[in-house]
């Protein structure tokens, strides 16, 4: 039985280690499942999972000391924050350009570093913000506005 969220927002925190390719992505798969368990519609849980995965792999591949993924679920929103403490992104506009990547060749050979990570994040979020400073780290904030699905996954008809 999956109950919709009651009694205020729920917060899920996942720590991600830098360089840990073996476990990279597990947190995101778990986040998707946790969200479904909290009654988030399948489409929204999927979008959140994609955002979390791209964020998680960024932490694995790029961050100096790893970071955290914090997901906050409220009645109408799913907020996802991906934060690390460095090294920071030198040119954010460039990093947001489809196809641009600074991934090392080992990551490319694993199928990462196509330069689509931040684009995929943006495409799946209803609202997106990125803050980054060299030396202090990167924070990505994403918001998904929850749909009101019925059990079949269809959105309810809008009442006029």
């Amino acid at each position: 039985m999956q109950e919709p969220t009651h009694g205020g927002p729920r917060r899920l925190v996942h720590h991600v280690r830098a360089g840990d390719i073996e476990h990279g992505g597990l947190a995101s798969a778990q986040i998707k499942r946790q969200l479904s368990g909290l009654g988030v519609a399948p489409q929204d849980a999927r979008r959140a999972g994609i955002i979390a995965f791209e964020g998680e792999m960024n932490l694995v591949v790029y961050s100096t000391n790893g970071g955290t993924i914090t997901v906050t679920v409220s009645e109408k929103l799913v907020d996802i924050e991906v934060a690390d403490e460095g090294p920071g992104i030198e040119d954010i506009d460039l990093a947001l350009t489809p196809g641009f990547s600074t991934a090392p060749s080992w990551a490319r050979e694993l199928g990462f570093g196509a330069g689509m990570g931040l684009c995929n994040i943006q495409a799946n979020a209803d609202w997106f913000e990125i803050h980054s400073h060299i030396g202090s780290g990167t924070r990505i904030l994403c918001r998904i506005e929850r749909r009101r699905h019925d059990a079949s996954g269809h959105r309810p008809t809008t009442r006029t």
């Binding site: 990279g24 791209e54 199928g111 196509a114 689509m116 995929n120 495409a123």
Partner: peptide, 24 residues
């Protein structure tokens, strides 16, 4: 083979063909 491209997949109930055996 590229995971970022898989993540851009919008269609559900699709079969994935890949030579990428990374744990991800």
């Amino acid at each position: 083979d590229l995971l970022s491209d898989v993540l851009a997949l919008t269609d559900e109930r699709t079969t994935l063909i890949t030579g990428n055996i990374s744990p991800q």
